[in-house]
Design a protein around this nucleic acid. Structure first.
Length: 407
DNA sequence: ATGTCC
């Protein structure tokens, strides 16, 4: 257990709920600071809010924050990409087992794992029994129960999106660690169904506001909430837990597909024991300081003592396999990545294609205008982010990307 | 993030 914590207090006024920020040496936008004050002002938020070094403005809650609540839950704080997170496996392959040109391997992975949104981003009866995963895991039955109670949650893509990547900042990567060992890493969430569940309950929470008598000021409609004891609270917890489980299965299924493609193109290999699958966008009940809390990690990873996590950098930079230090002040958490420093629109305007090509010269990846908003310059320095949280996690492995698939 | 907005 660390004694020299790296956080500083970010809140104003001695009466307000504290905000502890691990933000030494990283930029913190004024808007994000204001958003954190809004969250901390809610009477059911506490004992304090923890801010990770990849913090930036989000919808509802700030991305890169840990928001514990007592007897209440804020669906917009979790957001729509419920259960989004990372998975990584270590293989027995070495860098020398990879071909000099990785273009064919990238094409294979893009064929083996449906990527992107809409048509093309779903699978059509792939021969790996993905549908049985839905029933054997209980995911199918649990979703039916949710849909029976909430008829507006309609989806016919659940099976077809299990084992698929999606778009935006979701990715699949092949990386090398400091000993040139080959790793596979991927980032995705609960796809369309989680989005549907998230948006549905965010809307229901907003509707509830009309019937509530609040003894406090709600600074932002996106901070609408359900109170423990209300039927919608239980229904949201049930649905959000489903989406989190689906997201975890999605990453597992996708990993199996990536490894399958790799087996066709690379020398025979096995998987090492070290494997990680962690959410960074989720809510769950946890006990801290002897108190039962609902902990929302929006762009934050659980980092209990000894627990493994993944902190990816942007395309072409480094990623980290980390081990939690169980820092109590952070509700045992760490950052979920580098964090954006530029909005998607700003990135598209200011980063040129040649800058992107230069920044990703060593990576087999897309180099077209469609991924400019994901270029390294749109993100904070991962080195600075890691330096700001040495009391939260220790680095187990430093990975560098050699191949990256984007939706 | 997303059956992404008609």
């Amino acid at each position: 257990m660390e004694t020299n914590s790296q956080y500083e207090f970010l809140h104003v006024g001695s009466k307000s709920t504290p905000i502890k920020g691990w933000v030494q040496g990283v930029p913190l936008e004024e808007q994000a600071r204001q958003q954190l004050q809004n969250i901390a002002a809610l009477p059911f938020v506490g004992p304090w809010v923890a801010v990770m070094p990849d913090v930036h403005l989000g919808k509802g809650a700030t991305v890169g924050s840990v928001v514990p609540t007592r007897g209440a839950i804020i669906p917009a704080a979790v957001g729509v990409d419920i259960g989004c997170g990372m998975a990584a496996v270590r293989t027995t392959l070495r860098a020398s087992d990879l071909p000099d040109n990785l273009a064919q391997l990238r094409s294979s992975i893009e064929r083996g794992v449906p990527v992107g949104n809409g048509r093309g981003g779903e699978h059509r009866r792939m021969p790996d029994g993905i549908e049985t995963r839905m029933t054997q895991s209980g995911l199918f039955q649990r979703l039916e129960a949710i849909k029976t109670k909430h008829r507006k949650i309609r989806t016919d893509k659940v099976e077809h999106q299990l084992g698929t990547l999606g778009g935006g900042n979701h990715f699949i990567e092949i990386c090398l660690d400091e000993a040139d060992v080959v790793w596979v890493m991927l980032h995705s969430g609960s796809r369309g169904t989680g989005n549907l569940i998230g948006s549905y309950f965010i809307e229901r929470a907003r509707e509830e506001l009309a019937h509530r008598v609040l003894g406090f000021h709600l600074p932002d409609k996106d901070l609408a909430f359900f109170l423990e004891g209300e039927p919608l609270f239980d229904d949201y917890v049930e649905a959000v837990s489903w989406a989190q489980d689906y997201a975890r299965h999605n990453r597992e299924a996708m990993m199996a597909r990536v490894l399958n493609e790799m087996r066709h193109r690379l020398p025979k290999f096995q998987l090492e024991k070290m494997a990680v699958n962690c959410h960074h966008n989720y809510v769950q009940r946890e006990t801290h300081f002897g108190e039962s809390l609902l902990v929302t990690r929006k762009g934050a990873v659980s980092a209990r003592e000894g627990e493994l996590g993944i902190i990816p950098g942007s395309m072409g930079t480094k990623s980290y396999i980390v081990r939690g230090k169980g820092n109590a002040d952070s509700f045992h958490s760490c950052s979920h990545g580098a964090g954006r420093v530029m909005s998607r629109s700003a990135a598209k305007q200011s980063i040129t294609l040649s800058q992107h090509r230069e920044a990703t010269a060593h990576v087999e990846c897309r180099k077209d205008a469609g991924v400019i908003d994901e270029s390294p310059a749109a993100y904070k320095s991962i080195d600075a982010v890691m330096a700001a949280q040495t009391d939260l996690v220790e680095v187990v492995h430093t990975l560098r990307q050699v191949l990256c698939v984007k939706g």
